[in-house]
Design a protein around this nucleic acid. Structure first.
Lengths: 323, 323
DNA sequence: CTGTTAGCGCCTTCAG
DNA sequence: CTGAAGGCGCTAACAG
């Protein structure tokens, strides 16, 4: 119809026809059908963001960055939550593929992930966020979390701690593994023997953190410091500490990954590695949209974002009884 | 093609043909085009959830409830964040309408909201979540937050407080207004004169809470208790208290809406009205899907979910110096 | 049991 | 400047 021309403001239209059409549009409450448009253009102007835990403010902050960037360029975002389940992730990828999203930003549930290869086979651009997938060539935006963990551990070593426990996430997740690596590297450099009895792994949840922190505190002798691999683990650990009647930093020190707003009101403030979540979302989206436009280098890129250690009051010298 | 029949498992197909088709499907990496399907059926099997702050765990918990319920019935969810902006909300509604979503769950940015009427005009089912829109007949799932606020205030009155300040959200948002009403009702019942100088309004954010709490604490005489209207305001207020060197509950009492996980590790635990966010998401989605199926009562429904007051250690008797 | 026709709403192309 | 034809991928209805 001629209608298309007035809606898209394209081609020649007489003033009179334009007005008549515009009037009809408001009279009828006409809304263009994006489905039909997408079907024709093979472009939905929609990308998806798949995260592993929508209740974690780290990921929702990433989401804000993604959203802002996408909407600036006229893209909508479908936001999906996998709950750290590879099955859910696979289902989502499947549905999104059917819905013909233009591209996907993925926080993979697991290092041994075939969603990425599937998407690459189907020709749908992907950018992996926050986590690594070993042995797969793919655009990635993340932080050097091994380094962050190394710095946190070094900070504790500098304060005199020698018996430092690690509270990390699932071994199937790269960030959990990388943070364990950084922790171990710092210990080794300090001339300490590795002691796997001090390494604890569990889900990246408050309940998980509570659980493994309880185990760590039951060790004899008790560790004098804890390295928590994310915010939820840290919150769970705080709960365990409270129940055990232990105070930070008098009885024990704790440091963590991921700064979070309520960290500012907790007593004491948590020493933390802060990751630039919002910026990560931005960069990843920019990269994805560049790919969609057919641009960017030919090789998959790996973008490492800087982290920042914020030293606060949850970490202090080794208590005398523990030395 | 015959292909459609095998994919949808419908009608007669010879074993041989079926196998040949199936082989071709995997060989070619064929993915059905949901766009074309939706275009034909006028059904996208997609609903949208529009919230005002994606970083607030109250809303992300709602989102989990929505997602779980929707996916059980084969629906996908588009998750949108308006940042409390009516403009963004209108844009989203517009885009979602074009994308032909089957229905919308809306946390309206403002009480004077015309998104709902627009959607109703266009025939797209809506369920309003968490907040009220006065004078509009629409399905709604929310809590009786006026009652919650009344209970919190009564709790403080019972502890002997007489000078109680309110830290609420924007006056344009029903929950902020309703919570102010409940607070006022409790004061009036206790025979206290209303004192608007004790009522503070600002955005539902940590910065907002910090700001108005600072103002409240500057009053002379200083209030002996604070009622915070949501979790972010409470966190901001805690920050202000900390800076002022005031301790809960020794120097001051505070109660809040919305329980949140880090409340469990804060010192002291916050007395709070807990809203069943996950269940709210569930109920709202169930209602919406019922509407999509053409079911439910003819009248718009208003579903009120129960809240629960959890008394913890942030509220105590009036300090002696303040009586 | 399998293939053809037609149309969902859009837009490109080409005729009026 | 405006309209008609045709096709994006899908499926209901009907032929073969």
């Amino acid at each position: 119809m001629t209608v298309s021309r007035v809606i898209n403001n394209f081609g020649y239209i007489s003033q009179d026809t334009r007005e008549r059409v515009e009037r009809a549009i408001v009279d009828l409450g006409y809304v263009p059908n994006a489905l039909a448009r997408s079907l024709r253009f093979k472009q939905t102007k929609t990308i998806a963001l798949i995260v592993t835990d929508i209740t974690n403010s780290f990921f929702t902050t990433i989401a804000r960055g993604v959203e802002d960037t996408a909407s600036e360029q006229g893209f909508s975002v479908m936001f999906c939550n996998t709950d750290e389940s590879q099955t859910k992730e696979a289902e989502y990828v499947n549905v999104l593929l059917q819905k013909q999203v233009d591209g996907i930003l993925l926080v993979p549930a697991c290092s041994a992930d075939d969603s990425v290869s599937l998407l690459q086979d189907r020709g749908t651009p992907v950018v992996v966020l926050d986590r690594r997938i070993p042995n797969v060539q793919v655009d990635t935006v993340r932080c050097d979390t091994s380094l962050g963990s190394y710095q946190l551990t070094q900070h504790l070593l500098g304060l005199g701690h020698r018996r430092i426990a690690l509270l990390s996430g699932p071994r199937t997740v790269s960030t959990a593994v990388d943070r364990a690596d950084g922790y171990r590297r710092a210990l080794t450099e300090a001339g300490l023997a590795e002691d796997t009895a001090l390494e604890f792994y569990g889900p990246f949840t408050q309940a998980g953190g509570y659980q493994i922190a309880t185990e760590a505190l039951a060790l004899n002798p008790r560790p004098s410091a804890l390295v928590a691999a994310n915010n939820f683990i840290a919150i769970g650990a705080m709960q365990a500490l409270r129940e055990a009647g232990l105070r930070l930093p008098d009885d024990l020190s704790m440091v963590t990954f991921d700064d979070f707003s309520s960290a500012l009101v907790m007593e004491p403030f948590l020493t933390a590695i802060d990751q630039p979540a919002y910026e990560m979302g931005r960069r990843a989206t920019e990269l994805l949209l560049t790919r969609l436009a057919g641009g960017g280098s030919d090789e998959p890129q790996e973008i490492l974002m800087p982290t920042r250690m914020i030293i606060r009051t949850s970490s202090g010298p080794v208590p005398v009884t523990n030395t």
